[in-house]
Design a protein around this nucleic acid. Structure first.
Lengths: 218, 218
DNA sequence: GCCGGCTTCCCCCGCGGGGGTGAGCCCGAC
DNA sequence: GTCGGGCTCACCCCCGCGGGGGAAGCCGGC
């Protein structure tokens, strides 16, 4: 039940502040610290933490690169919470694309910080790095450009159409009727789109659709 | 495939405007008009429309009362789209509580109006009057007071808890583990909550949870 | 007392959903 | 031309889900 945490930040002051907040919780333990992205990988490999608090801006290897390294190498890697100063940080989408599970603003109240840590640690397969990544891609597509390396994981038009209908609560048979297609075809689209989103079932896919803004609350 | 519509508004000008918009569509037909809520019931009974466009403010019997009368008497009643001038109309929740399926602003572009009509007409069991009603109740609970007559269909604490976890993408087994309960228990709660929300499956329940603001996009 | 609602758990059963695999078609890129 | 990707549909298999029962303990209200 105990959640182990690694803290990565180039500012010792921030590190100790985060450490104090985390260690004050009985169910959270800091098992390691790093001052730069380059140091992270061995520490994580050694300590196998549940969650990594990762600063974005760091001298040599920044948080994005470090996250990428971390999650490419390890399976299943730790959850990465990116720590940032500003809300509209352009790094946000990059970090999501690299596989981060969420964000913390440095001015977030301690109680919310620890809660966020528990949330991501707890969500074993809940909220779904790949899904968030494809969310980031979707957002990026509507705004930025940046050749991002990985850009699989976005949905074809048909898949988007199917997802939209799924998000209206329709069954495969209903979707098939709506689109004048066979149920088998819909099942294929659903299966493909689930895989791309990293969702386990249609419910998770619909959640992702909402969370990513792919469908909006009416 | 043809969708029949009844228009209810005390302003003849608005009526003819709506009629023009609706009749311009090959798949939509206006089968009746009423100038007051009191006239609605017999007209609907006679014409059996798919959708009723219902003005809120009317002299004798307003749109809320008329909607209630309409849907209490008939089973399955028509879909009711409430037509209103302002977005933040307090009548909104009352109308939902009375069983309306959705809203139209009078300044909505014609193309969107006809699309909305098709949507509610089309959604045979899709978006789910009972669910929307319980949505209204939830909102009312957090803000208004108004003894609303019907207030069944709200969820117990346990059911709300289960729904929240469903809306995080968890399976019954995962929810059971999370709450230290048996899977059977979760299945019972899920079944009960589906019934109360008028949802057919967990996916629809999650959709309702989002649409109603019961869970928010993070 | 009794009754009703909430919570907990049990059974059986059918069906739809999701995994795996394969295949034919079209089209655009190479 | 070949190749790849998208779209369409097919078959098999399995399991989780949801429906339809029932039942127990607990609590609060009539």
């Amino acid at each position: 039940m105990n959640i182990s945490v690694v803290i990565v930040d180039d500012e010792p002051l921030i590190r100790s502040g985060l450490r104090a907040i985390v260690d004050a919780e009985p169910d959270l333990t800091v098992v390691g610290e790093a001052g730069d992205g380059a140091e992270v990988l061995p520490i994580v490999r050694r300590t196998g933490p549940d969650v990594v608090l990762m600063d974005v801006r760091m001298p040599a290897v920044d948080g994005i690169q470090a996250t990428r390294l971390l999650l490419d190498g390890l399976d299943p890697g730790p959850r990465v919470l990116v720590v940032t100063t500003f809300e509209n940080d352009d790094y946000v989408y990059d970090a999501l694309r690299a596989g981060a599970s969420g964000f913390l603003l440095k001015r977030t109240p301690p109680a919310d910080i620890v809660q966020a840590i528990r949330t991501v640690a707890h969500s074993e397969s809940l909220l779904f790095p790949e899904a968030i990544r494809s969310l980031a891609l979707a957002h990026a597509g509507s705004r930025s450009d940046a050749p991002t390396g990985l850009d699989h994981a976005q949905l074809t038009e048909r898949e988007q159409e199917v997802l939209r209908l799924m998000a209206r609560g329709m069954s495969n048979a209903e979707i098939a009727a709506e689109l004048f297609l066979g149920v088998q075809t819909i099942k294929t689209h659903v299966a493909n789109l689930l895989a791309k989103l990293g969702a386990r079932d249609r419910t998770q896919a619909v959640i992702i659709a909402y969370e990513s803004g792919f469908v909006a609350v009416r």
